[in-house]
């Protein structure tokens, strides 16, 4: 246990240059990445959840960038500087350095602090007030996970089946539609379920993903903030047409939404009384090994 670190944590001469280089590069690159790359990061900012996740991704990129620079600089420098000059030189041994406690402690402490920061930030982002949610909260989310205006949220039931999505609006007579249309600026409460196998409801632009598990109502909140059309996809392998299990998602103005839902109610009126009463989950026949 010699060489290098006797006098405190002095940087060895081989590393001094790149230590400076690392400091400069990190100080320059990190803000640049945050300012210029951050806003371009998926999943964009079409909803509060998307915005929160984008922020989250920006923070993580900002943490990763200096680490990446540091590691790259160290490895490139080491591989050039410490390479065997020729065949003979490459067969003489290097110095028997076996480890320095200080370096190890410093390293562990640094990684631990980074991990703590990341975990704390991630947990903090989970609070709905911080707009980081968007994921499935299970069938009975605890109150701390609910957004402030949860009670006034527009309930939308998402039903997955092999292989399509349908949507029910319980506050509009339980009308069931094949297209997802949401009013802009309105908190939405998805209740995601399935009537056969596991699917996963992924509204890409809204940054919402919640598994649709049969017999379970998976709740997710989101507030779309921009009028935009996109696609809902299935993110859990569900059989033959998994890749095709898409449906259209439109975020429209409240007025357009009211017009649309009125039109849908009229359009689906003939089938309406055949539909089951609205429930969080459905267990349609046949359930098992039909004869």
């Amino acid at each position: 246990m010699s060489t290098g670190g006797e006098g405190g944590l002095k940087v060895p001469p081989e590393l001094r240059r790149i230590a400076w280089l690392w400091l400069v590069l990190s100080v320059v690159a990190t803000p640049l990445v945050v300012i210029f790359v951050g806003p371009l990061l998926p999943p964009g900012s079409a909803s509060d959840a998307a915005h929160g996740q984008q922020q989250d991704n920006t923070v993580m990129v900002a943490i990763v960038v200096p680490i990446m620079i540091g590691l790259l600089l160290y490895f490139i420098n080491a591989l050039i500087m410490f390479r065997g000059k020729d065949e003979a030189d490459a067969l003489t041994d290097g110095p028997a350095i076996r480890g320095q406690t200080r370096v190890m402690v410093l390293w562990i402490a640094t990684t631990f602090v980074i991990v703590l920061l990341l975990a704390a930030w991630g947990a903090y982002e989970l609070f709905p007030g911080e707009e980081g949610a968007g994921g499935g909260l299970g069938s009975a989310p605890i109150s701390v996970a609910l957004p402030a205006n949860a009670s006034s949220a527009l309930p939308v039931q998402v039903i997955g089946q092999q292989w399509t999505w349908t949507y029910r609006y319980p506050t509009f007579g339980g009308v069931e539609t094949t297209e997802l249309v949401l009013p802009v600026g309105q908190e939405v409460r998805f209740s995601v379920t399935s009537i056969d196998v596991i699917h996963s409801f992924w509204a890409v632009h809204l940054a919402v993903k919640a598994d649709a598990v049969p017999g379970n109502a998976n709740v997710a909140f989101v507030k779309p903030v921009r009028e935009e059309s996109s696609t809902v996809r299935c993110a859990e392998l569900c059989g033959l047409w998994h890749g095709h299990m898409t449906s259209r998602l439109r975020v429209v103005s409240p007025a357009a939404f009211r017009a649309w839902i009125a039109h849908e109610r009229e359009k689906w009126a003939p089938i309406q009384h055949y539909l089951p009463a609205y429930k969080p989950t459905y267990a349609p026949e046949p359930t098992y090994r039909a004869e």
Binding site: T3, G4, P12, E14, L71, Y74, F75, A78, L79, F82, R83, G84, D89, A90, L91, T92, D93, G94, P95, I97, G99, V103, M104, W107, I108, T111, F112, I114, V115, L118, A119, G122
Partner: peptide, 24 residues
Amino acid sequence: ELISIPTALVFLNAMGTLFRGKIR
């Protein structure tokens, strides 16, 4: 995220092993 701590140790081992070596 805690797993990244022991994983990072492996990186440290590698960096320390390369240091002042005669790399082939």
